[in-house]
């Protein structure tokens, strides 16, 4: 965990209201694992006051990448930053995906809904490096919601897209696409990040098929470092169900531990 107050924004790429930032932040990049996140300061003053949590889209010894969609004031301010500007970032935070279930030569399904694709790129790279075969399912409402499809393909990953409105790829929810593919190839593990209803549906599907699955949860976060107890989700524990801080024990949890609202 490092506070990097001088992280240089090296490169910005944008597609409508989606942005990819390449950032020089060696200390954070070196320690980052797929599924972890960072807390980014969006303003110098108190409007907005809190940092915003963003998943680590990719990382190496020179720094990290972020991929985000403008959702409100904070991400809008962030989206106006230009290459060369400095950012104030805390990370890497939380516990990421476990790579072990996707052993050498085995297939892993990665399902991303909208901005939930962000951490899956880093995960797919790590899985590939470990000799596993990631298949990425990337869904959105329409074509404009799945801007990373070219980037994923160029990186050499197998990618299947879906759009709710049928404007590109499979017509329907990404969960339906995953279910359809499950009938063909059963992966060793399923990883997912996206809106709650999508992950809840996927949790039911993977449970039905008896597949191990890991989900990256979201919550409004006050601190990102386990101090405010604001980011809780209902989680099954050995000692009983309880409200668990997702910034600390998560954001990634095994499917069987998550109690969906």
């Amino acid at each position: 965990m490092t506070i990097d107050r001088n992280a240089r924004l090296r490169e910005v790429q944008s597609w409508g209201d989606h942005f990819r930032f390449v950032i020089d932040a060696p200390a954070i990049g070196r320690d980052a694992r797929p599924g972890q996140f960072v807390m980014v300061k969006v303003s110098e003053g108190s409007a907005p006051l809190l940092r915003r949590p963003l998943g680590i889209h990719d990382a190496d010894a020179t720094g990290i990448e972020l991929f985000f969609r403008v959702a409100g004031r904070g991400t809008e301010i962030l989206s106006r930053k230009r290459a060369g500007e400095r950012l104030d970032i805390i990370g890497p935070l939380g516990r990421g995906f476990t790579l072990a279930p996707a052993a050498k030569g085995r297939t892993a399904y990665l399902a991303g809904g909208g901005r939930g694709i962000a951490p899956l790129y880093f995960l797919a790279r790590a899985l590939t490096a470990a000799g596993a075969k990631p298949v990425i399912f990337y869904g959105g409402r329409g074509l404009a919601d799945i801007p990373l499809r070219d980037r994923l393909e160029k990186a050499g990953f197998e990618v299947q897209c879906s759009t709710d409105d049928g404007s590109f790829g499979f017509a329907g929810f990404v969960t339906a696409l995953v279910e359809k593919e499950l009938a063909r190839v059963k992966p060793a593990v399923v990883y997912a990040c996206g809106p709650d209803p999508m992950m809840k549906a996927l949790a039911a599907i993977t449970a039905k098929h008896g597949l191990p699955a890991e989900f990256s949860l979201e919550s409004i976060m006050g601190c990102g470092i386990g101090a405010c107890w604001g980011c809780v989700h209902r989680i099954r524990n050995e000692g009983g169900d309880g409200w668990v801080k997702i910034c600390e024990e998560g954001p990634v949890f095994p499917g069987e531990r998550i109690l969906w609202p």
Partner: peptide
């Protein structure tokens, strides 16, 4: 503790 959401800015 209370059910979420627990924070609002």
């Amino acid at each position: 503790g209370n059910p979420p959401p627990r924070l609002v800015e």
